[in-house]
């Protein structure tokens, strides 16, 4: 169906460029971080930067801002993924048969 008022290209393109520069800056941060700071937490820091980038993309490029129903479905899905993650990680980090297991080291 005929949807929506037409948008003004010149007025709205600014936000796209701003987001681009934000993402470029965060990508640069990705490369600087392992050499410069918090190097003992590289993995966590990288995932944190990734999450920030993902959030920006979701909100601005994917127009999630202002979508109530779709927003909740996304939150629900992400919650489920996080739950699967945490339970399985709890299980594997409490792995109690490491001494008799072959899977952590090749049986030479």
């Amino acid at each position: 169906m005929a949807n929506h008022k037409t948008v003004d290209y010149q007025a709205e393109k600014g936000i796209y460029y701003k987001v681009l520069f934000g993402l470029l800056a965060l990508t640069a941060l990705t490369f600087i971080q392992p050499e410069m700071f918090l190097t003992q937490y590289t993995f966590g820091m990288q995932m944190l930067i990734g999450t920030v980038k993902a959030w920006i993309i979701l909100m601005y490029y994917m127009h999630l801002k202002g979508e109530v129903l779709i927003g909740w479905t996304v939150i629900f899905a992400v919650f489920i993924v996080v739950f699967f993650f945490s339970i399985v990680m709890i299980d594997v980090s409490n792995f109690q048969y490491a001494d008799v297991s072959h899977i952590t080291s090749p049986a030479q």
């Binding site: 339970i87 709890i90 299980d91 594997v92 409490n94 792995f95 109690q96 048969y97």
Partner: peptide, 14 residues
């Protein structure tokens, strides 16, 4: 889902 894994060597906490 984990109740299918009680005898599979899952950690006791899980």
């Amino acid at each position: 889902w984990g109740h299918h894994l009680f005898t599979s060597g899952m950690s006791d906490l899980a």
